[in-house]
């Protein structure tokens, strides 16, 4: 039997995954100081908390790029030219899977399947699906995001 480790927040039972998602959304990533705060607030040993965070691919303990791209690697996407899109992203952004660009604009990940097999090939851009991708459409998306970031800087 598992020990009840429900978290209490404002008198309401809380689920750790939801707490972690909210913290990540607020701070961009789950830094050591953020995890320490959660650890003491909910009386969860920091080692256990870190172990949980590292298990899930969507939680990050390092600073992330402004835009997170998760390219789908499911067979349905692979059969629909998915691999060439992955290669394009790697060469265009000059990073490997799991890395962030130097200008901190993009982080690139590969995911097992995002359930968009009917609109393959697909990816998640900041958790929103982009579907029926082509190299041209990807190029345009990346360019737009770069342009947006440039305009904001000015």
């Amino acid at each position: 039997m598992s020990e009840r480790t429900n978290l209490m927040e404002g008198g309401k039972d809380e689920i750790l995954l939801n707490v972690l998602h909210r913290a990540q959304e607020k701070h961009g990533y789950l830094s050591e100081s953020v995890l320490k705060k959660i650890s003491s607030k909910y009386s969860i040993p920091i080692a256990k908390l870190y172990g949980v965070v590292k298990f899930y691919t969507m939680f990050h303990t390092e600073p992330q790029g402004k835009n997170i791209i998760e390219i789908c690697g499911s067979p349905s996407c692979v059969l629909n030219n998915g691999i060439s899109l992955e290669q394009f992203l790697k060469s265009e952004l000059k990073i490997k899977i799991g890395e962030t660009t130097q200008d901190k604009l993009f982080s690139l990940y590969k995911t097992s399947c995002i359930g968009c097999c009917d609109e393959a090939p697909a990816m998640l851009l900041n958790r929103k699906p982009c579907t029926r991708l082509t190299i041209d459409s990807l190029k345009a998306t990346i360019e737009n995001l770069r342009k947006e970031a440039g305009e904001k800087k000015e």
Partner: peptide
């Protein structure tokens, strides 16, 4: 409850571990 990118959590015992705040 928001999952966080682990396929295994669709399996019932893993899902329960996840819900209880574990790996």
């Amino acid at each position: 409850v928001r999952g966080a990118g682990a396929y295994i959590c669709g399996e019932s015992t893993a899902l329960l571990q996840s819900l209880q705040g574990n790996r």
